[in-house]
């Protein structure tokens, strides 16, 4: 797995995720990266990667909306000027 630090360089994070606990995709997977968003500007996140942790918090066992809320709050908080993602290319979740 890889730790990716995404600076908040744009007003949006700019990723779409699918998956979460109790779905076919138990950990959130990146399905889109929007051009011009912070994630795209960072250049290190890729479509297909699985998000294991956000700012050190595990997404394991979290349902989709809970995982999405955690990521949204990590981007919104003014406590940090970046969001740390622990990602993997592999579907390790089960």
């Amino acid at each position: 797995s890889t730790l990716v630090r995404v600076p908040k360089s744009a007003s949006t994070l700019g990723i779409a995720i699918e998956g979460g606990a109790n779905t076919r995709q138990p950990l959130p997977r990146i399905v889109t990266i929007q051009r011009g968003g912070s994630a795209h500007n960072c250049g290190q996140l890729k479509v297909g990667q699985i998000i294991l942790e956000v700012n050190g918090v595990s997404l394991r066992g979290r349902e989709h909306r809970d995982a999405a809320r955690l990521i949204a709050e990590a981007f919104k908080t003014k406590e940090r000027d970046h969001v740390d993602f622990l990602v993997t290319e592999f579907n390790v979740a089960l």
């Binding site: 700019g14 995720i17 699918e18 998956g19 076919r24 995709q25 909306r65 990521i71």
Partner: peptide, 16 residues
Amino acid sequence: VREKRLTLPPSEITML
């Protein structure tokens, strides 16, 4: 295991 996985629902997609 495979059968169980097939019964799980697909996920919604959220843009962040």
